[in-house]
Lab assay of single mutants.
Amino acid sequence: RKWEEIAERLREEFNINPEEAREAVEKAGGNEEEARRIVKKRL
């Protein structure tokens, strides 16, 4: 699934746990840019 690939990239890029990465992607509706913004806000 594409969402899992996005979550994996976010996890590696921001050094967050898989659960946090998945939550961000879900919140963003699968949009990678939006997920990235969500993760950055949390850091």
Rank of each mutant, 00 (worst) to 15 (best):
W3C: 00
R11E: 09
L43S: 09
L10M: 13
R37A: 13
G29F: 01
N31H: 06
E26P: 00
E12K: 02
L43A: 08
R42Y: 14
E34K: 09
R9P: 02
E34M: 06
L43K: 03
A28W: 00
E5K: 11
V25A: 12
N17V: 12
R9I: 15
W3P: 13
R42H: 15
F14H: 08
E34L: 05
K40L: 09
E19L: 06
E26L: 06
E34R: 06
E34V: 06
E33Q: 07
N31V: 11
E12C: 01
E5F: 12
E4H: 06
I38H: 11
E13D: 10
E5M: 15
K2D: 14
E26A: 10
G30L: 04
F14A: 07
A7W: 05
R36W: 07
G30N: 03
R9C: 05
A21Q: 00
E8K: 10
E23S: 06
A7I: 15
N31Y: 05
E19K: 09
R9Q: 14
R11A: 06
E13G: 09
E19S: 14
K2G: 07
A21K: 00
K2Y: 12
W3A: 15
A28F: 01
A28Y: 01
L43M: 06
E23T: 12
R37T: 15
E32A: 10
L10R: 00
E26V: 08
P18D: 02
I6R: 05
A28I: 01
L10E: 00
P18C: 06
E26R: 07
R11P: 02
L10T: 03
E32T: 07
E13F: 04
E19G: 15
E33I: 03
K2W: 02
K40C: 06
G30C: 05
P18V: 15
I6A: 12
A28N: 02
E20F: 01
E13Q: 09
I38K: 12
E8M: 14
R11M: 15
A21W: 00
W3N: 05
E33W: 04
E20K: 05
R42Q: 07
F14N: 11
R22W: 03
L10C: 01
K27G: 12
R22E: 15
I6W: 03
W3L: 15
I6G: 03
G29Q: 10
E23L: 09
I16A: 08
N31M: 08
R9M: 14
E20A: 09
G30A: 05
E23K: 08
K40G: 12
R1G: 07
I38Q: 12
E19N: 11
E32D: 12
R22Y: 03
N31W: 04
R22C: 07
I38G: 12
I6Y: 03
E23F: 01
A24L: 08
E26Q: 14
E34F: 05
K41S: 10
L10Q: 01
V25C: 09
E32I: 08
E8H: 07
E19I: 06
G29P: 01
A7M: 11
K40F: 02
W3Q: 15
G29E: 11
G30M: 10
E5Q: 10
E13P: 00
F14R: 02
E4M: 14
E32H: 02
N31G: 07
K2N: 12
A28V: 06
W3Y: 03
E8N: 05
R42K: 09
R36A: 09
A35P: 00
R37D: 08
R37W: 06
V39S: 07
E19F: 01
K27V: 11
